[in-house]
Computed example of a mutant assay.
Amino acid sequence: MGPQPGRTPHLDPQRRRPRPARTPRRSPRDDPTVRGGPVRRRGAPQHPGRGTRLHRGLAHPRGHPADREAGLPFDACVSQHQLPELAQLAVTCPHTTIVLDHLGRPKPAARSQWSQAWRRLAQQPNVVCKLSGLATPLAPDIPSAFALSLLREALDVCGPDRCLFGSDWPVMLLATDYRAWLDLVREALGLSSWTANDAVLRGNPERIYRLVPSRFQAADLARKEAR
């Protein structure tokens, strides 16, 4: 059974396991000090039958100046065929942290192509990967083991320091629930250390999105550090 409407699901505090940070959906246009545009925009050049190109206005020769000065990350919700373009953007904007949402929406029938494009993209140190949004686009007959293998590959390529948990709430409810997705990400982490789990579920989202920990989280961390 999924979480009740209007309530944010929480982990059992008795388990003493890292709590996932709430990752906001945000783009440069959400901040009044930033003049950058979103990944997709109306009227941009298009690939025939393949959607819109990445926003060329972001390809500033010295990196996106507004993002760099404001210290904002850039969330890229792109499809698999756009990963090479995103890699070029990452090279052009080395001072901007680029968050790849949903692992680039990999297609089961083109797993090897996704893997090659993703590994080239991950070579750029300013790229991080959000472990989210895989359940919804997959067909019902695709086993969860496929999504699990994608999560493990992302963690293997980037490491826990460049991956962060994301739920894709509430779209995820079309295919799964919060608890099931969280458990799948934890299974992908496997026997990773507490530090790695904490980085993916809490530390990296707070650092990348400059989130302020709640009083409960701050007190919990203080107790752990005092041990």
Rank of each mutant, 00 (worst) to 15 (best):
L83H: 10
P137F: 01
D177H: 08
R119Y: 02
F216Q: 12
S115W: 01
G6F: 01
P84V: 03
Q124N: 15
I208C: 01
R22F: 03
L54A: 11
P5L: 03
L11C: 04
H60W: 07
D12I: 02
C93F: 04
R50E: 09
D12T: 04
L103P: 00
G63F: 02
A175V: 09
Q82V: 10
R22P: 00
D141G: 07
Q124A: 15
L148A: 13
W194G: 05
G51A: 08
P143G: 10
L54H: 12
A222Q: 13
L174P: 03
R223K: 12
A109M: 00
A109H: 07
T136R: 15
K130T: 06
D30K: 02
P20L: 01
P45S: 10
R50L: 15
R62M: 06
D75I: 06
D183V: 10
A70V: 03
R35M: 09
V171K: 02
D12C: 11
D177G: 00
D177R: 01
I208E: 02
R152Y: 07
A218Y: 06
T8M: 14
R53A: 13
W118S: 12
Y178M: 05
N126Y: 09
H10M: 12
R26T: 14
C93K: 03
Q116K: 14
H55N: 15
D75G: 01
R7H: 15
H55I: 02
V34E: 08
Y178F: 13
D198V: 05
S27F: 09
F74W: 12
G36L: 08
P205I: 00
A218S: 15
T96S: 14
A87E: 09
Q82K: 03
K130R: 06
A76F: 02
E153S: 10
R120N: 13
A110M: 13
V171Y: 02
L58S: 03
S27D: 15
C129D: 11
C93M: 06
A145V: 11
C163W: 00
C163I: 11
A219R: 15
P94N: 05
P24V: 01
D12Q: 07
K107H: 14
L184M: 13
R186G: 14
P106Q: 08
D141V: 07
R210E: 09
V212N: 09
K130V: 02
L100F: 03
H60L: 11
L11N: 07
R120A: 13
E69W: 10
N197M: 09
P94T: 07
R7D: 03
D177T: 05
A122C: 08
R56G: 04
V185I: 10
S79R: 12
Q4I: 04
W181L: 01
A21N: 05
I208L: 02
L100I: 04
V34H: 10
Y209T: 05
P84L: 09
S149N: 06
S193Y: 01
R207G: 00
V157I: 08
L221F: 13
R19Q: 14
G43Q: 06
H95E: 15
A66I: 02
Y178Q: 13
G37A: 10
H102L: 03
W169E: 07
L86D: 01
P73R: 09
P73K: 03
H55V: 08
D198Q: 13
P65E: 00
R22D: 04
V39G: 06
C93I: 05
L54W: 04
W169A: 07
A109V: 00
W194P: 03
A226F: 09
T8Y: 09
